[in-house]
Design a protein around this nucleic acid. Sequence first.
DNA 1: CCTCCTTTAGTCAGTCCTGACTATCCAGGA
DNA 2: TCCTGGATAGTCAGGACTGACTAAAGGAGG
Lengths: 198, 198
Amino acid sequence: MERRRKVPNPLALAVLAWLLWEPMHPYELGRRLKQSGQDRQIRYTRSSLYMVIEQLTRAGFVAPQETVRDSARPERTVYAITDDGRHEVHDWLRTLLAQPRQEYPHFAVALSLLSLLPPDEAVEVLRRRSAALAGRIEETRTTVAEARADGVAWIFLVEEEYSLALLEAERRFVTDLVESLKQPDYAKSWQETMGDRT
Amino acid sequence: MERRRKVPNPLALAVLAWLLWEPMHPYELGRRLKQSGQDRQIRYTRSSLYMVIEQLTRAGFVAPQETVRDSARPERTVYAITDDGRHEVHDWLRTLLAQPRQEYPHFAVALSLLSLLPPDEAVEVLRRRSAALAGRIEETRTTVAEARADGVAWIFLVEEEYSLALLEAERRFVTDLVESLKQPDYAKSWQETMGDRT
DNA sequence: CCTCCTTTAGTCAGTCCTGACTATCCAGGA
DNA sequence: TCCTGGATAGTCAGGACTGACTAAAGGAGG
């Protein structure tokens, strides 16, 4: 049904998108990713960047254009996007937007094991999370406000607004959860079922 | 500051948690993970399950207990958790709950490239997402309702409630986004800035 | 009784990815 | 003048992960 991507790493999508603009060498791509703030949406290291470009080359989505060496610097290979690459960006982008993917946040795993902790301990750690979330929300709001003040159009900030929406939803969820855990019924039933442990 | 886990894969946490209960062989662990619905929070394959158990053994968090072979079946190695393992579960769980981790949803990457699509195309694909999200929400609600009807306590359904909260937040976000993209101002400014492309 | 499908149980080749490393240039302080 | 730190640019060993494979037993259907 759903054909597997030749280079499934989302970093590859960002790379292709930048190469749509103009040919570049890997290090320059890294700089753009960082300056545009896309490193907040994509987990990568410099090595994985080189790896992904190699994979994209094998897949035929990009092609090395030239190897320049100016002023005794290490030589840099400039890559350009191919027609297949252009097609891949468009197709991949449509798919990512249209089809929600099952995501696997670490927090969900931890929640599924919440019953292992004594109620008061659970309340304590979740309160710490709530405070940390509040901090993240504040940071993101500041980032967005500053960018807006610099004249950045809203369409280039949607991803931050999305993060914000998720953070706020999580914070509401955690707050409610703490309230539920504080109910004396919970402490009682936890004692009854989990009393026998180390 | 934050010490790296010896076995960072979240599957390892779930494995340790099950072994807290009683010693088991890998295949049995796989069955429990599936039956308890934890396969909805953790991405894994059977091979990664064996890999992770091997890593846990090397890390000293679990230890092979015995190799049984009943009725000519392939032999199964039963693993038990160690004291280090017990400590690791507790410590890891607390950390995961208390500290929000930067997550990297694919959708956020796609959103950061939304401006590449013509406005009407963007609206079209996001509407499809919205419909798909509605389906997911419905499914999750059903799962929760059925479990509750079977007498499952709410604490064992928190992870589903969390998924639900995120799905609903995302749906609200997408709905609002579609409205913004439909504004004629957007179509106009997109034409102006992106008119020059293939 | 034969065949085919499903379940049980695990292995393995090859790719992917990360962390650590190499090496050069330039600016600024001591 | 020398030393240090940071930016530039990239490589590489080794471990982690996936998809495809092996293999035996049980049950259903003809």
